[in-house]
C-alpha cells in the first residue's frame, strides 16, 4: 500500500507545485491523476520515488517511509517502484533486450552490472515479458528503430521486470496517437490485474482516465480537489478541477499539456 501524506513541493524558484497532498493507493487499483497543466501532476508522481525531492510531507510504501531514506535505502525502495515515462527514456542505441534488462541493474553487483552479466532467470523473465507486451521478434532491434508505441511497451517491460510493488506512469500516452494510447492503457490495466499491483497514472486525457481508471484524483493548483470513482466525475467536478472559465477541450491541447510538466523537470535540473 502506498500512502502519501501531506506532501509539499516548493521549487527553488518559489513555485509551490504541491500544497499538502494526501491519498492512499492499494490492491491492484488503477489511479489516474488528472488536472490542468501546471497543477503539479508530474511533480506529484515524481515525488513518490523522489526523482523530484519533496519539500515536506511523507510517502510510505507498505511499512517503509520513502521520504527520509538515505541514498542506499532509497535505491532499495526504488527497485520496488517501476516508472514509465512520457518520452520513454530508453537508451536509444541499445537493443530492446538490453533496455529491458536494465530494469534489473538494481539487483546486480557492480562488477556483474559492469559486464552486463545478468543471471539466467532475469533473461528468461525478460523473454516472458517480451511476449506479454507483444514485442517478440524485435528483441535484438535497437530502440531507435521502433515506433512510439513499441518504445513505450519496452519502457513498460523495463518497469515490469523489476517485479515492482507499484507502477508509476508519468504521462505514458502523451507522445502517442489515440489508438496506441488505448493499447498502452489496456496493457497497463492488464499488468495491474495479472501482477496484482496498483498503478498511478498521471494523464491529461480525461476520457482515457475515465475509461481505464478505477479511481480518479483531480489535482488543481497543487491541491486535490477530487478523489473518487470515474462515475462521480460529473461536470461540476470537472469544472472544479479545470476551473478558470476555459473549456476542458482548450485545456487538453497536447502542447499546453506537456510544456509545464517538462518545465518542472528542467527547474529540478539546475545546478
Amino acid at each position: 500500500m502506498l500512502t502519501v501524506d501531506n506532501l509539499e513541493k516548493t521549487y527553488d524558484s518559489g513555485d509551490k507545485a504541491l500544497k499538502g497532498v494526501s491519498f492512499e493507493v492499494s490492491g491492484n487499483e488503477i489511479v489516474a491523476i488528472i488536472g490542468p497543466s501546471g497543477a503539479g501532476k508530474s511533480t506529484l508522481v515524481r515525488s513518490i520515488n523522489r526523482l523530484t525531492e519533496p519539500t515536506a510531507g511523507r510517502v510510505s510504501l507498505d511499512d517503509t517511509e520513502v521520504t527520509g531514506l538515505d541514498k542506499s535505502a532509497l535505491r532499495d525502495v526504488r527497485r520496488d517502484m517501476g516508472m514509465i515515462f512520457q518520452e520513454f527514456n530508453l537508451v536509444e542505441r541499445l537493443t530492446v533486450m538490453e533496455n529491458i534488462l536494465s530494469g534489473r541493474l538494481g539487483y546486480l553487483s557492480t562488477w556483474n552490472a559492469f559486464r552486463r552479466n545478468f543471471p539466467p532467470e532475469d533473461i528468461k523473465r525478460a523473454r516472458e515479458i517480451l511476449s506479454r507486451v507483444n514485442l517478440e521478434g524485435v528483441e535484438n532491434n535497437r530502440a531507435d528503430e521502433l515506433s512510439g508505441g513499441q518504445r513505450q511497451r519496452v519502457g513498460i517491460a523495463r518497469a515490469v521486470i523489476q517485479r515492482p510493488k507499484i507502477l508509476l506512469a508519468d504521462e505514458p500516452t502523451s507522445a502517442l496517437d489515440p489508438d496506441t494510447s488505448r493499447e498502452v492503457m489496456s496493457l497497463l490495466t492488464d499488468i495491474a490485474h495479472e501482477d496484482d499491483i496498483p498503478i498511478i497514472i498521471n494523464i491529461h486525457e480525461v476520457d482515457l482516465a475515465v475509461d481505464y481508471a478505477d479511481r480518479i484524483i483531480g489535482l488543481s493548483d497543487g491541491e486535490i480537489v477530487f478523489n473518487g470513482p470515474p462515475d462521480d466525475l460529473d461536470q461540476a467536478a470537472r469544472d472544479e478541477i479545470y476551473r478558470g472559465g476555459e473549456s476542458i477541450a482548450d485545456r487538453e491541447a497536447p502542447s499546453a499539456g506537456s510544456s509545464t510538466d517538462s518545465d518542472d523537470v528542467i527547474a529540478e535540473r539546475g545546478d
Binding site: N49, L51, R75, D76, V77, R78, R79, D80, M81, G82, M83, F85, N89, L90, V91, S102, G103, L105, G106, Y107, L108, T110, A113, F114, G155, R158, A159, Q162
Partner: peptide, 11 residues
C-alpha cells in the same frame, strides 16, 4: 530512468 529503477550512480 536507469537511476529511477534502483541502479547505483556508477551503474
Amino acid at each position: 530512468a536507469v537511476a529511477g529503477s534502483g541502479a547505483t550512480r556508477l551503474q
